[in-house]
Each structure stands twice: as structure tokens, then as C-alpha cells.
Amino acid sequence: MSEDSPIIASITGVLYPFIIMFGIYIIVNGHNTPGGGFQGGAILATVFIGRYIVTPVDDMNLHAMHSLEKLLLAVLILVPVVFLFAELNRAHAWLNEPYLIFMNLLIGVKVSLGLTIVVFRFAFSKDR
């Protein structure tokens, strides 16, 4: 594999939208079809990591991504606490589905950010 192969670059360029669409599909339909937040998030992470394989440049703000991931973790804990302890799921039964979709979305974004950060930190760490 050469450093900048035009074949890999153009093929992955064509594939990006489909991968993103597939990942979002799996996240959004996770509550009643196979898949869910983790699987969809991992698929979304392959977009970023594939981009590293094509063009290895360190232009992502990993620090901001890390902060966003921590924030998402807090939201991920807060939303079920608010939703379930207030017993909104019994008072308004129609809220259950949006709740599950929202939670899957949060998990998906968090997992994709986490995996991307892990790979990029590994790829650009300075020690030998």
C-alpha cells in the first residue's frame, strides 16, 4: 500500500456517504431491528479511521472531541435518570420510542468519537 494511492482515495471517497448512511440507519433503527448505538457508532468510526489510512494528517481537534465525548457521557447518564425517575415512560407511552432513538443516537456518537480518538492518539503518539 503506497502512501497516497489514488485508487484507494477515490474508492473510499465514493464509499463515505454510504458508510455514514448505513451507520445512521443502524443507529436510528436500533430499537426494533438488529444493531444499535454501539454497532452504528463503530461503523461511523470506520469513516474517520479510513480517512486516516487514505490521508494521514493530524488536523483533527482530538482535545475537543474528547471533551465532547465526556459531555455525552454525562448526558447519557442524565437522560435516563430524568426520563425514568420522573416516570414519563408511564405517563406518556408514546415517548418511549423517541427516547430509545435518542439514547441510541447518543451512544452512537459517543462510541464513534471514542474509537476515533483511540486510533488517532495511537497513530500520532510520539513515542517509539
Binding site: 444493531g35 444499535g36 461503523i43 479511521i49 486516516y52 486510533v119 495511537f122
Partner: peptide, 26 residues
């Protein structure tokens, strides 16, 4: 077990492969 299958396909054949290739490049 389609759920596990998706996770295995994504992580095993995409993420880990890319991670190994990254390590080899380094």
C-alpha cells in the same frame, strides 16, 4: 445472532484491520 454479527463484522474486519495497518505503518 444478527446483533453480534454486525458488531463482529464492523470491529473485527474493519476497525481492527485498520488499527493493525496503522501499527504496521508506524
Amino acid at each position: 445472532a444478527p446483533d453480534v454479527a454486525i458488531a463482529e463484522a464492523v470491529i473485527g474486519s474493519a476497525l481492527v484491520t485498520l488499527l493493525y495497518l496503522t501499527a504496521l505503518r508506524r
